[in-house]
């Protein structure tokens, strides 16, 4: 509860500090506009056309369901990876042997391109939700797993001794000693995984699904509709930016306030 209150309280100051970020985003838009003027509207429509197309898509109600479908798949895969990766990673981090054994497997998982998983998933799950969800899950899992494992591996034995001397009951050892440390490793991993899930789901949908942003991108590509393509891309990237910078980053700051030198 205090977390939510502090998050709301710190939001204005945080948004004010975002002027620099907004300025750099605007610079990016300027470069886009310049490129559009240089190459012509067919190759690269200017940002305003893209945003207008997006606004049109949103207004006629065709964008909402597609975005919802994509978000559902991305968040399902991400959620599964978050739970499985965190639990498995913590378990592996507790044991030296398990963490040494899991390292090469993680490297294999990270090294396998998502597109390869996608082809396999198509064979296994067909054209339903299963394919994008599985692909997202496999792409996110190793990232979360490594974060959780590092968190558990770097637990401070000195603090554990201190907790024993002061007779902390087991639940307090978990909530007051283990959890805050592990979360400081898990949180960044979760944020990275969320970004990955968002990218991978669009790719999976493009090849495997009949609805969702990826499928809409496939349609606009076949119509050579670059404005719609950029509109969809803007929608996906915009959503990711909003979730990351309005929700996760302030939360992360609040959770890790003890780290920052103020």
């Amino acid at each position: 509860m205090t977390l939510v209150r502090n998050w709301l309280a710190s939001l204005p100051a945080y948004l004010w500090s975002g002027w620099g970020a907004i300025a750099s985003l605007l610079l990016f838009l300027a470069a886009w506009e310049w490129a559009s003027v240089h190459y012509g509207a067919l190759i690269l429509p200017d940002p305003r056309t893209a945003f207008a197309t997006l606004a049109g898509l949103l207004a006629d109600g065709s964008a909402g369901p597609e975005l919802a479908a994509t978000a559902r798949r991305a968040l399902t895969g991400f959620g599964l990876a978050l739970v499985a990766g965190s639990l498995l990673g913590l378990a592996a981090g507790v044991s030296m042997t398990a963490s040494m054994m899991s390292r090469p497997i993680v490297t294999v998982l990270i090294g396998t391109p998502p597109i390869a998983w996608l082809v396999l998933a198509l064979l296994w799950f067909g054209a339903g939700d299963g394919t994008p969800v599985f692909t997202v899950f496999v792409a996110c899992l190793p990232v979360v797993f490594v974060g959780a494992m590092q968190g558990a591996r770097t637990l401070d034995g000195q603090l554990r001794d201190m907790a024993r001397v002061f007779r902390l009951p087991p639940w307090m050892r978990f909530t007051d000693v283990v959890l805050p440390h592990v979360v400081s490793y898990l949180f960044p991993a979760w944020i990275t995984a969320l970004g990955i899930s968002w990218k991978v789901v669009v790719m999976a949908e493009l090849l495997a699904s009949s609805d969702g942003v990826g499928a809409a991108l496939a349609v606009s590509r076949s119509h050579l509709d670059t404005a719609a393509t950029l509109a969809w891309i803007s929608a996906v990237v915009g959503l990711l930016l909003a979730v990351e910078y309005l929700l996760l980053e302030p939360l992360k700051r609040e959770v890790e306030r003890w780290r920052v030198a103020t």
Partner: peptide, 12 residues
Amino acid sequence: ACMFQQPRLLPW
């Protein structure tokens, strides 16, 4: 009660 060579405070 115990005091260690380092303060061993919980940083969070």
